[in-house]
């Protein structure tokens, strides 16, 4: 930066001018709206955005509102399942499509994996509605399984891209060395590839989780009776009044995620190197 630096700081390989400032701004930008949301969840007023004093009434209301609780828990279940399944599938696919000489169908696989990204949600939603409705009426099976499949599918590219990006830069030297030392392919994978790949997998899984938690349109069309998620619950309210109950629930979700961050941080401190 062009700040008046008196004493030259020790030369750092990694620093880049201005990056720290932008990153700081980025975090401010990310959190300013969220803090507003948290503040308004303690609003005594009746509507989502008119401040009328401190109160816990919306937490009480959310506590008493089974619909909103059900929807939240269902959203979390769905996101957990979809992110685990899609990350596993995406990791396998990434291993099969990177660090390999071009083979027949590589482009096709690539296009297919990214396909959910390219089709507007509403289109997939309508098409899935038709397809799943047929299966539902034929088999009589309702269940969350349709939502899980739909979510897993559109989470795959989101999980795939970071994993692929990570893999592309990993050369094969270590794995080749392991193979030369008579490690089985399975062992090589567990001991070498997976640990190296881990950051990509984490990034991918997080993305998938967040994307699933976010989805409105596809869920709205695929859901059967009683399968409300938090986003579809909100969508239903959009036309009328969105109550600060939603703010309260969101604040609790944020709290939960913060808790996860802390636990993760603690674990890394304690057991990481």
């Amino acid at each position: 930066m062009i700040s008046p630096i008196r004493k030259r700081p020790p030369f750092s390989l990694k620093s880049q001018p201005g990056f720290g400032t932008i990153a700081g701004l980025c975090f401010v930008m990310l959190y300013a709206p969220i803090i507003t949301l948290v503040v308004y969840s303690f609003n005594a007023g009746k509507y989502i955005s008119m401040w009328e004093g401190f109160s816990l009434q919306w937490y009480v209301a959310a506590w008493g509102n089974e619909a909103v609780q059900d929807a939240t828990i269902r959203s979390l279940y769905l996101a957990a399942q979809a992110s685990v399944y899609s990350t596993i599938l995406a990791t396998m696919a990434a291993l099969g499509t990177t660090r390999t000489p071009p083979f027949r169908g590589l482009t096709a696989i690539y296009a297919m994996i990214n396909q959910p990204l390219m089709v507007p949600e509403i289109v997939t939603a309508v098409a899935l509605l038709i397809l799943f409705a047929m299966i539902k009426s034929l088999t009589g099976i309702q269940g969350m399984v349709y939502l899980v499949i739909a979510h897993t599918a559109f989470c795959i590219p989101f999980a795939y891209l970071p994993i692929r990006a990570r893999l592309e830069g990993m050369d094969l030297i270590l794995e080749t060395a392991a193979a030369d030392l008579y490690a089985t392919p399975w062992k090589t994978f567990w001991r070498i590839t997976l640990p190296l790949l881990w950051p990509g997998i984490i990034a991918g899984a997080m993305l998938a989780f967040v994307i699933s938690l976010d989805d409105v349109v596809i869920t709205e069309f695929v859901k059967s009776s009683g399968q409300e998620t938090l986003p579809t619950y909100m969508l239903g309210q959009l036309r009328r009044v969105i109550t600060p109950e939603i703010n309260a629930i969101s604040t609790l979700l944020l709290g939960l995620s913060m808790l996860v961050v802390c636990v993760l941080f603690f674990i890394e401190r304690k057991f990481g190197k």
Binding site: A67, L129, E220, F221, G226, E228, G236
Partner: peptide, 14 residues
């Protein structure tokens, strides 16, 4: 069990 929709067209389509 209550399930929501946000428009007549969505309800009809489903």
């Amino acid at each position: 069990t209550i399930t929501d929709y946000d428009s007549n067209t969505t309800a009809l389509a489903k």
